[in-house]
Design a protein around this nucleic acid. Sequence first.
DNA 1: TACCATATTGGAACGCTGTTCCAGACCTGT
DNA 2: ACAGGTCTGGAACAGCGTTCCAATATGGTA
Lengths: 223, 223
Amino acid sequence: MAKATRGSERREDALSRERIVEAAIELLDDEGENGLTFRALATRLATGPGAIYWHIANKSELLVAASDAVVARALGEVLAFPTPHEAIRGIAVGVFEAIDAHPWVGAQLSRPPWRTAMLQIFERIGRQVQAMGVPGGARFTSASALVSYIIGVSVQNAANGRLLDPPVDRADFLETVSAQWKELDAREYPFTRNVAAQLREHDDRAEFLAGIDLILAGITASL
Amino acid sequence: MAKATRGSERREDALSRERIVEAAIELLDDEGENGLTFRALATRLATGPGAIYWHIANKSELLVAASDAVVARALGEVLAFPTPHEAIRGIAVGVFEAIDAHPWVGAQLSRPPWRTAMLQIFERIGRQVQAMGVPGGARFTSASALVSYIIGVSVQNAANGRLLDPPVDRADFLETVSAQWKELDAREYPFTRNVAAQLREHDDRAEFLAGIDLILAGITASL
DNA sequence: TACCATATTGGAACGCTGTTCCAGACCTGT
DNA sequence: ACAGGTCTGGAACAGCGTTCCAATATGGTA
């Protein structure tokens, strides 16, 4: 009797690569990047650390798999757009919001191996650059610049949101930084002091899109 | 006699925050980011781990201090330029090459707290944006876009160079990646496959500057 | 010079981590 | 019913950041 019970419920919660990656994503979202340990993951999956290693080589591979899953999901949700210009903005926002929702992805993207996740973004952006009418020789440069900008801003935006241990209100946070900037030495930081006020009414997403438009304007201007 | 000898040479190798940060930079450059441990650092400074903690709060602070030192040194070497356009290129290249020479700095920059290092870059770029004649309301956006792009590309460039454990030749590396891209599925990655050839004769620095010019063109176009 | 309070040192120890190892349990095909 | 590989999970290892603290060096005062 005891044997039968244990045997039947065993197949239900069988370990698998997907289940492990899914649990890792949950753990990272719940506890932050430092929350993902093989022991915590094993506990959540009601098993031991050793069992996980049968399905996944090491922590690095686990992080790559988790990031890829998040990026793939985000890009999958990006729909069709009437113009290349709008499509690029749509893809960019999709990536931006995915990293904003899962800040730990950012730390992974700017780290080797830039495998599937980065490649997927590059491919999607590249196609739209081509559709914009950019000639062959300049496509690589334009797509690279866009992808670098998208990843760069998204990662930094995620890093900012992550830096508060007791999650502070965004407005309060901007207020604080803005105040700090105003306190800077007038000789060393004249520019930063000057724009400190603008920081208070600052919308990351809008600023991000404005940057995209800036690059797109540059691409268009050199057609 | 013995007492005098020990006493006199003791002051020579006295510990200090600067000496520790300098040794940390050397260690990071020599052994990579994983090479910096408090034990290795203590050995290099001929002391124990505990002594280091008298001068520095924790590893995070040490990394921030090391990054700040490298960035400050790099920006200090950037000279005057006749036009804002050239100045921005000059600053950008300075940052790019500093991170290329010290890849571990990249991992730090896109991580909170973005204190002095990031701020210094932002300030330097911002002043030149102002000099370009960008109106007050758009300065923040333009400077942010440039800084994000500069950091984004530099970090990714550094990450690429770092990923090879036996340091492979750059040309061989590009050849390999280019070949990998050509093997990609034609349905899923048409664009990436198409530009794979361009990757082989790819110059990171030139590509980086082309991206800067793209953004500058965008800024100029919207003046 | 003798002494004390303070600043500084460095080695031992703690708790945690990623990873390895392996005895045993499970599942499948004969 | 049994033999094979597949899969599990707990114990153990080395190494990490960090803390602790007894020992020492230093600078000021009597």
